[in-house]
């Protein structure tokens, strides 16, 4: 649906050139929710603005829905943009227009008949839950309501793509959640391709199918949400994941001496991460029954990434050295991610 080929963007200025986006290749499939995450100044906005050519790339080609935007004349580009909705961090509504007239705006500029506009705007008001606010002005709305107007406005011309630049960054967590639910709902209902720019891992985790991590103008990692979460390759990605997932050692182990290798009279501390179905297996009882080891759960957390359960558990095993080794290899054979964090002195 969206294809960026060797896209680059450099801002030229007297105080030196800024390479905001280095040679970037990106493919986004129809109907998916694609997240782009990065720290402030990483080039996220530049990247998303190249998709609808609000920013003209310095080099490379941009294809949207099979058309090359970088080869278009201005008038063709304006037409193509009607297929690409966009919502913004600060909503960017027209202050002098009511909710209804804001949503009608993109249709108005296409020269669509008033009666036809009405037929389009009313269901959209319904969709975003603002029917009773239709004659209010933006200054009379809360942030969440403003973003709902922004979404309705972006959807008015039936776009195939919705670009969201930090669409929830100005909202509180509760409102963010409801906006994300709305986006996920329209993604399913209208089979809309959504590109989400964010610096919040929680947003990515809640709705994205695939994710790219951007740093200093380059995409440093890209993959399915699950892959990224369970197998992050770069330090930056790990950092982002740690903002919502506790990957550090549980607090009670912080003051305990941890040996990297087995020592006499120590027990292993193991972190078990599991995804999807294996979360349902009777793991602990199998260990105790079949491997004659005791399992002491130090930390546990189950969460879900979109609809897939995902969990982490930190356990301490105790038993004979041989039993513990076979128990660990049993765990390793399963569809689990096992990390031996270290060994601590036995306290029995």
């Amino acid at each position: 649906m969206i294809d960026l080929q060797n896209v680059e963007k450099t801002y030229f200025s007297k105080n030196g050139d800024v390479h905001a986006l280095k040679k970037t290749n990106l493919h986004i499939n129809a109907g998916e929710i694609f997240g782009i995450i990065g720290l402030s100044g990483a080039g996220k906005s530049t990247l998303i603005r190249c998709i609808n050519m609000l920013e003209t790339p310095t080099a490379g080609k941009v294809f949207v829905d099979g058309q090359e935007l970088t080869a278009m004349r201005n008038s063709e580009l304006r037409k193509a943009r009607q297929n690409i909705g966009m919502i913004f961090q600060h909503f960017n509504l027209l202050a002098s227009r009511t909710v209804y007239d804001n949503i009608a705006f993109p249709l108005e500029i296409q020269g669509i008949d008033k009666a036809v506009i009405k037929q389009k705007v009313e269901p959209l008001l319904e969709l975003v839950g603002l029917t009773d606010r239709r004659d209010h002005y933006p200054s009379q709305l809360s942030g969440g309501q403003k973003q709902r107007v922004g979404i309705a406005r972006a959807l008015a011309s039936n776009p195939k793509i919705l670009l969201c630049d930090e669409a929830t960054s100005a909202l509180d967590p509760q409102t963010t959640k409801s906006i994300l639910e709305l986006l996920r709902d329209i993604n399913k209902r209208l089979n809309l391709t959504i590109v989400m720019i964010t610096h919040q891992m929680q947003v990515v985790k809640d709705i994205c199918d695939r994710v790219a991590v951007i740093e200093h103008g380059s995409i440093i990692e890209e993959g399915s949400l699950l892959d990224l979460f369970t197998n992050p390759q770069t330090a930056t990605t790990k950092e982002f994941i740690s903002t919502i997932n506790n990957v550090e050692l549980p607090a009670i182990l912080k003051n305990t001496k941890i040996f990297p290798d087995y020592q006499p009279n120590t027990t292993p501390i193991i972190r078990i991460s599991f995804i999807g179905n294996s979360a349902g297996d009777p793991l602990i009882s199998t260990l105790i029954k079949n491997y004659s080891v005791d399992v002491n759960i130090i930390y546990g957390n189950i969460d879900s990434i979109k609809d897939t359960p995902y969990g982490t558990m930190v356990v301490e095993l105790s038993g004979t050295k041989d039993n513990m080794e076979t128990a660990i290899s049993y765990l390793q054979e399963r569809n689990l991610k096992i990390e031996v964090l270290g060994y601590v002195a036995r306290n029995d």
Binding site: N52, L54, S75, R78, K79, A80, R81, Q82, I84, G85, M86, F88, H90, N92, L93, L94, A95, S96, R97, F105, P106, E108, I109, Q110, R153, S157, L163
Partner: peptide, 28 residues
């Protein structure tokens, strides 16, 4: 706010439409 102008551009508004439907009404 430049963001409002940008939003109009993202919807495919022409410069003339931005002048008559965005700039002038918003600044009236």
């Amino acid at each position: 706010d430049p963001g409002v102008i940008e939003a109009s551009q993202s919807m495919g508004a022409s410069p003339m439409q931005i002048i008559t439907k965005v700039l002038l009404p918003e600044a009236m």
